[in-house]
Computed example of a mutant assay.
Amino acid sequence: MLLKNLHRFALILALGWACSGPTAKEGMSTSSFDQITDNPDDKPRGDYPYFIRAKVNGELKEYRDPDLLQFSKATIMPGVHQAAVVGGALDTEQNGSSGGFTIFIKDDEQIKAKRYDFLEPFEETGFGLKGATIGYYTAGHRKNYVSDVNKEAPVVVISELTDDYARGTFQGKIYDIVGGEMVSLTDGEFYVERLN
């Protein structure tokens, strides 16, 4: 139980970090891009093609804000590798976020194009959870949902990983960290710029 709560706390901190500062390349502006759209037929606007989207209980949520959309990866310690896909939208009127998705992958080998369909304790190192975790948060973080290690594991597939971008799909059941309410993420996909 303590491990699960610590993991949830770390995810909330990461969600906040993902929304705290710019990550777009120099010279990019969000002024010509829609930051969120609920139209599945909507095509990328301007020169910024990146996005993350999924159906949340059947309702499409899509985020394209260049300042809040990225893929990054790091080696935490020998034998512990992590990647993050984050995307959200700013709510300038409320000085916060209008929602977003997070995907964290932790493995004992370098993160690469691969199917991650497990979530389990990181037995080799004792360092948190190994596998894929998906998160979704609503406006102002009023609701925060995350994968539960004691339930069905999410499925995250990194289909392409280049020096410039990451592309893939995701789906799974995620749970409100306070009340336990479940939401289903389906038809999830991402095409995001690499930060590192």
Rank of each mutant, 00 (worst) to 15 (best):
V157N: 12
D148R: 05
R64G: 01
G88V: 15
K61R: 07
K143D: 08
A83N: 12
E124Q: 15
F101A: 08
V56K: 06
V86G: 02
G79P: 04
T133G: 01
K106V: 13
F122Q: 10
T125S: 05
E62T: 10
F101T: 15
F127Y: 12
A132D: 10
A153H: 15
K61F: 00
A74C: 06
A132R: 13
G131E: 05
I76C: 07
Y136I: 09
L119Y: 11
G128C: 00
L60E: 00
A153C: 04
G135P: 13
N95T: 08
F101C: 06
V149T: 02
T125Y: 00
T162I: 07
I134P: 10
K130I: 04
N144H: 09
D148C: 07
K114W: 02
E62S: 10
G87R: 12
D117V: 09
Y136A: 03
H81S: 00
I76P: 13
E59I: 04
I52F: 05
I52E: 14
E109G: 07
D164Q: 02
E120Y: 06
V80A: 05
D148Q: 07
L68C: 13
G140S: 02
P121L: 08
D65E: 07
G79Q: 12
Y136E: 08
K114Q: 10
N95H: 10
K61G: 02
F118L: 11
G79S: 03
E62C: 07
V157S: 15
Y137F: 15
V157K: 10
D91F: 01
K55V: 04
L161F: 12
V156T: 14
T133H: 00
F127S: 10
G135M: 08
V56T: 14
K143A: 03
G88K: 10
K114C: 07
G79M: 09
A83V: 13
Y136G: 04
A84C: 11
K55L: 04
D107S: 15
R142K: 06
A74S: 09
Q94F: 12
I103G: 11
I76S: 11
L119M: 03
G99H: 03
G126L: 00
P154S: 00
S159T: 12
L161A: 09
S147C: 05
F122C: 11
A139P: 04
E109D: 02
M77A: 12
F104C: 05
M77K: 12
E123M: 12
T133S: 03
Y116K: 04
R64N: 01
Y137H: 03
D148E: 11
K106N: 13
F118T: 12
K130C: 06
T92V: 09
Y63D: 14
D148H: 15
K112E: 13
H81E: 03
K106A: 11
V157R: 13
A153E: 01
A132W: 08
G99V: 01
V156I: 13
P121Q: 10
A89R: 01
E109L: 14
F118D: 13
T125D: 00
E62D: 14
S147Y: 00
F122M: 03
S72W: 09
I134D: 04
I105L: 05
G126N: 03
S72L: 07
K114P: 04
T92L: 09
E93S: 12
A84K: 14
E124L: 15
